[in-house]
Nucleic acid binder design. Structure first.
Length: 446
RNA sequence: GUGGGUGUAGCUCAGCUGGUAGAGCGCUGCGUUGUGGUCGCAGAUGUCGCGGGUUCAAGUCCCGUCACUCACCCCA
C-alpha cells in the first residue's frame, strides 16, 4: 500500500504537538471549572432541520449517509454539527425539565464544516464554548461574567497576546437611532464590513443602502473609529454629541464588561472596547465579542460570541443566553505548523529506566513501579542495548532522566546536564517542571 | 463553488533550450570494546503524484486526472 496522504482541512498533530494542545485545553477547563461552569458533551450529529434553522444554509453541513443504504439518493436526515451553540440550544430545550437555571456550561468539542480549507480554517476543528442560559430573562451581569471567565482563561494561555474585543449592539443601535437612521440593522450590517472595505466605500454604502446623509455616515464612521483598552470610549462617544436612551444603556453595559475584564489584563491578554465590532449574525442583541491573536490578524478572529435574547425557544418559554467560543484549532494549528508551539517531549515519561540485560528486567520494572507509585511517569527500556543507545532513546523522545540500577546501587542521570547522582527509587523526585512535558512557545520571527 | 500556485529521498528543496536523478538536514554503521549529544569517516534511501501523448530519448514538452496549497466567499 502506498503511503497515505493528508486530507485537506483535517489537521492531525504529532504527539509532542498534541501534548501542547492538551495543555491548552487543560488550562481552559481549569479556569471554566473554577468559575463553576459544568461540562457537557453533545452528540456530533443533529437532525438537519435543527442545523439549518435560521436559514444557515451556507454552513456547508456534512450529511450522514449509510454506505449500504438501499436507496442511494437518500440521507439519514442527520448532519454533523458546525458549531457548539446550535446543539447546545437543542440540548437546553430537550433537557429543560432536568436542568437548573441559570445553566452555566462549557463544551470543548470538534465541529465540522464542508468549506474550502485555508490557514486557520479547517473542515474539522475543535472549539471551546462557554455559555450561560436562563429562562425568560437573563440578567446583564452574566454578560460580564462570561467575558471575565473567558478573559481569565485566555490570559493563562502560552500563546501570542490575545485580545478580547467587545462592543454592545445596544450602544451602536442607540447611536444610529440617535442620529436619525431609519434602519439601524442595515447600518450595523454595513459597518461590519469595515475590516474588509475602505472607510470611504463603507460611507458610500451607508448613503446608498441605508439612506443616510453624508453627515450621518460620517458620524457612524467616527463612532466605529473608537477603540480603547479602558472605559475612555465613553467620553469619546459623548463628544460626538448624540443622545438616545438605548445609547446610554449600551455605554453602561460596555463599561461594565470592560471593567469586569480589566483584572485579567496582562502581557498576554487585553480587553478592548471596539465600537466597529458588529458581527454579521443577526441574532445577537446586546454584547458582542471577538477574539484576535496579535501578529495573526490575517487569519481573522479566533473566537467570538455575544448575547442572544432567544438562544432557544419551545414556543412557551424563551431561553436567552450569552456566550463566547474560542477556536482551539484555528489558534493553535497555525502556531504549531510554524514550529512556534510544541512541548518538551513526545512521551509523558519523565524517566527511562535502563536495562542492564534481560535477566534484570524484573529489577528495572521494580524501579519503574516505585516511581509510578509516587506519580512519576516512567518506562523501562525496550531492550538491553548498549547504555549509549538507551540514553539516545531517551534523548530523542525528550525524556529528561535515565535511571541505572547497577550492582553498586541506583543512579539517575539528567541527560540534559550530564549530571549523574546516586538515588533511591523509593524517595527520588524530579523537579516539578520535569514531571510532565512542558509547553514550549516561541515568538514569531520578524 | 470561482480563480491562481505547487507535486522530485523521511524533511526542506535544486535539477537550464529534453540526454544515465542531486544537495543540506535527518537516518544507519564505525571511530568510542555497555553512558548519548560534539566531531571525523563510511553507507543506505526515489514507481520524479497518477494516466496518456510527442520523441531515438521525458523529472523536463503537451493533454487529462488526482492531491495539496493560496485568494475570493464565509467564519472558530
Amino acid at each position: 500500500m502506498t503511503r497515505p496522504t493528508p486530507v485537506s482541512g483535517f489537521p492531525e498533530l504529532l504527539p509532542a504537538q498534541r501534548n501542547a494542545e492538551l495543555a491548552v485545553i487543560e488550562r481552559l477547563r481549569t479556569t471554566f471549572e473554577l468559575h463553576g461552569f459544568a461540562n457537557i458533551e453533545t452528540r456530533v450529529a443533529e437532525p438537519l432541520d435543527v442545523l439549518l434553522r435560521k436559514g444557515e444554509i451556507d454552513k456547508e453541513v456534512y450529511v450522514l449517509r449509510r454506505l449500504q443504504s438501499d436507496d442511494d439518493a437518500s440521507d439519514s436526515g442527520l448532519g454533523l454539527h458546525y458549531d457548539l451553540t446550535v446543539p447546545f440550544a437543542r440540548y437546553v430545550l430537550e433537557n429543560a425539565g432536568k436542568l437548573e437555571f441559570p445553566f452555566r456550561r462549557y463544551q470543548i468539542q470538534k465541529a465540522w464544516r464542508g468549506e474550502r480549507p485555508q490557514e486557520g480554517r479547517f473542515r474539522e476543528f475543535t472549539q471551546a464554548d462557554i455559555d450561560v442560559v436562563m429562562k425568560d430573562e437573563l440578567p446583564f451581569h452574566f454578560d460580564v461574567e462570561v467575558a471575565r471567565v473567558m478573559a481569565e482563561a485566555l490570559s493563562t494561555l502560552p500563546l501570542p497576546p490575545l485580545s478580547l474585543r467587545v462592543n454592545s449592539r445596544k450602544l451602536i443601535e442607540g447611536f444610529y437611532r440617535g442620529i436619525g437612521a431609519a434602519d439601524p440593522a442595515t447600518v450595523i450590517r454595513i459597518i461590519d464590513k469595515l475590516d474588509k472595505l475602505a472607510a470611504d466605500q463603507v460611507a458610500a454604502m451607508l448613503v446608498t443602502d441605508a439612506a443616510l446623509s453624508d453627515e450621518q455616515a460620517k458620524q457612524c464612521l467616527a463612532l466605529a473609529d473608537i477603540s480603547t483598552p479602558d472605559t475612555s470610549f465613553v467620553a469619546q462617544v459623548r463628544a460626538l454629541g448624540v443622545e438616545h436612551e438605548l445609547l446610554d444603556t449600551g455605554l453602561a453595559e460596555l463599561t461594565a464588561v470592560v471593567e469586569g475584564c480589566a483584572p485579567a489584563n496582562n502581557d498576554r491578554f487585553t480587553v478592548q472596547a471596539s465600537l466597529s465590532l458588529a458581527r454579521g449574525l443577526d441574532y445577537y442583541t446586546g454584547t458582542v465579542f471577538e477574539i484576535y491573536m496579535q501578529g495573526y490578524e490575517s487569519i481573522g478572529s479566533v473566537g467570538g460570541g455575544g448575547r442572544y435574547d432567544a438562544l432557544a425557544s419551545d414556543g412557551r418559554t424563551t431561553y436567552p443566553g450569552v456566550g463566547i467560543s474560542f477556536g482551539i484549532s484555528r489558534t493553535l494549528v497555525p502556531l504549531i505548523s510554524r514550529g512556534l508551539l510544541t512541548s518538551t517531549r513526545s512521551v509523558p515519561s519523565a524517566v527511562l529506566v535502563a536495562l542492564a540485560d534481560e535477566e534484570s528486567r524484573g529489577a528495572s520494572d521494580n524501579v519503574a513501579r516505585q516511581l509510578r507509585a509516587r506519580g512519576i511517569p516512567a518506562e523501562v527500556a525496550a531492550s538491553a542495548q548498549k547504555y549509549g543507545r538507551q540514553i539516545r532513546y531517551a534523548d530523542r523522545r525528550g525524556i529528561p532522566y535515565v535511571w541505572f540500577a547497577g550492582d553498586t546501587g541506583h543512579e539517575v542521570k539528567d541527560i540534559r546536564s550530564g549530571d549523574q547522582v546516586a538515588a533511591d527509587p523509593a524517595t527520588w523526585t524530579p523537579p516539578s517542571e520535569d514531571l510532565r512535558p512542558q509547553v514550549t512557545s516561541k515568538e514569531q520571527d520578524q
